[in-house]
Simulated assay, not measured.
Amino acid sequence: MANHPPAEIFVDESLVRRLLQEQHPHLADRPLRPVANGWDNYIFRLGTDYAVRLPRRLSAAALTANEQVWLPALTADLTVATSAPLYAGSPSEAFPWPWNVTRWFPGTAVSLQPRDRNVALAAPLAGFLNAFHRPAPPDFPRNPVRGVPLASRNDAVRGRLDSGMVPHAARIRELWEASLELPVWPGPALWIHGDLHPANLVGAADGTLQAVIDFGDLTAGDPATDLAAAWLVFDRTGRNEFRKSLGTQYDADPHVWGRAQGWAVCMASSLLANSDDHPGMYLLGSETLMEILTEGLDWP
């Protein structure tokens, strides 16, 4: 069964060129070509320095709007580059939703390299999170599936575990139930990326982190959501280095890593149950599940 949602609007080079001519004419003459047709967005490369991202679905349009409103200020002082909008596109007669022009990063998607190489990402990714996980204002963009108490994801996770699509479901269920018993995040709602997996990380030529991309799930809440990257991105060696590099920022909550593993279960089960038409994402779910099973309840 294919789970990639169909596009609600068809976008090609001619439409993108028209939008650029109308709203950002100084960019409109650069070479343009499609490079990805993802879950939420069309992505075109514009010249050598830019990417154009346009929502494929109405539900993704709201995510694009959130990026336009919040990301420029949130990422201005970060030491790690991001896909924050450089030029914002507005709804128009040609295209009814917001769209963005961002930087193009020439590095390699971390999802395409072996996990044992990701240890070099541990320190810069930890630095990104320590800087990004700041208290959010009361009007932060709500997200029903990220940053929320794990119990709110229980029905979805149990449904996946009952579907037959998740290997070792009985043991994974035990680990999931253990995470549900932990206290919720006791601190203020912190800004979170919300979807911090290897396909949203770009590696530099020297093996370190070039950029963090795709903030469509941007919200605030429990930072354990992003700390699930310990299992999504790293093997045990890298995970230990990642935790060490984070320092003491989360030490006030002794349960943060237990919930982070719960979030890793939530995300891995989603990848396994919903990526049968995307082998790379299915493999990510499978590898993450093995990391979770290997570690069990051995939280720091």
Rank of each mutant, 00 (worst) to 15 (best):
residue 1 M to N: 12
residue 1 M to V: 13
residue 1 M to H: 13
residue 3 N to A: 13
residue 8 E to P: 05
residue 11 V to M: 04
residue 13 E to T: 14
residue 15 L to G: 07
residue 19 L to G: 04
residue 21 Q to C: 05
residue 24 H to R: 11
residue 38 G to F: 02
residue 42 Y to F: 13
residue 44 F to P: 01
residue 46 L to A: 07
residue 47 G to V: 08
residue 56 R to P: 02
residue 58 L to A: 15
residue 70 W to D: 01
residue 73 A to Y: 00
residue 87 Y to N: 00
residue 97 W to A: 02
residue 97 W to K: 11
residue 110 V to E: 04
residue 113 Q to S: 14
residue 114 P to E: 12
residue 117 R to P: 00
residue 120 A to W: 08
residue 123 A to F: 01
residue 124 P to E: 12
residue 127 G to D: 10
residue 129 L to D: 09
residue 131 A to P: 02
residue 133 H to N: 10
residue 136 A to V: 12
residue 141 P to T: 11
residue 143 N to G: 07
residue 144 P to G: 08
residue 144 P to Y: 06
residue 147 G to D: 05
residue 149 P to F: 05
residue 150 L to S: 05
residue 151 A to I: 09
residue 156 A to V: 02
residue 157 V to G: 06
residue 158 R to A: 01
residue 162 D to A: 14
residue 168 H to A: 14
residue 175 L to T: 05
residue 177 E to R: 14
residue 179 S to E: 05
residue 180 L to V: 10
residue 185 W to G: 01
residue 187 G to A: 04
residue 188 P to L: 12
residue 189 A to S: 14
residue 197 H to T: 13
residue 197 H to E: 14
residue 198 P to G: 07
residue 199 A to Q: 13
residue 202 V to H: 02
residue 206 D to I: 06
residue 209 L to E: 10
residue 218 L to W: 03
residue 220 A to V: 03
residue 223 P to Q: 05
residue 224 A to W: 08
residue 227 L to P: 06
residue 233 V to C: 07
residue 239 R to G: 07
residue 242 F to L: 08
residue 246 L to G: 03
residue 248 T to K: 08
residue 250 Y to W: 10
residue 251 D to V: 00
residue 251 D to R: 13
residue 251 D to H: 12
residue 252 A to F: 09
residue 256 V to S: 06
residue 257 W to G: 01
residue 258 G to W: 10
residue 259 R to W: 01
residue 261 Q to I: 01
residue 263 W to R: 15
residue 272 L to T: 02
residue 285 G to E: 06
residue 288 T to E: 13
residue 288 T to S: 15
residue 291 E to C: 10
residue 292 I to S: 09
residue 299 W to K: 00
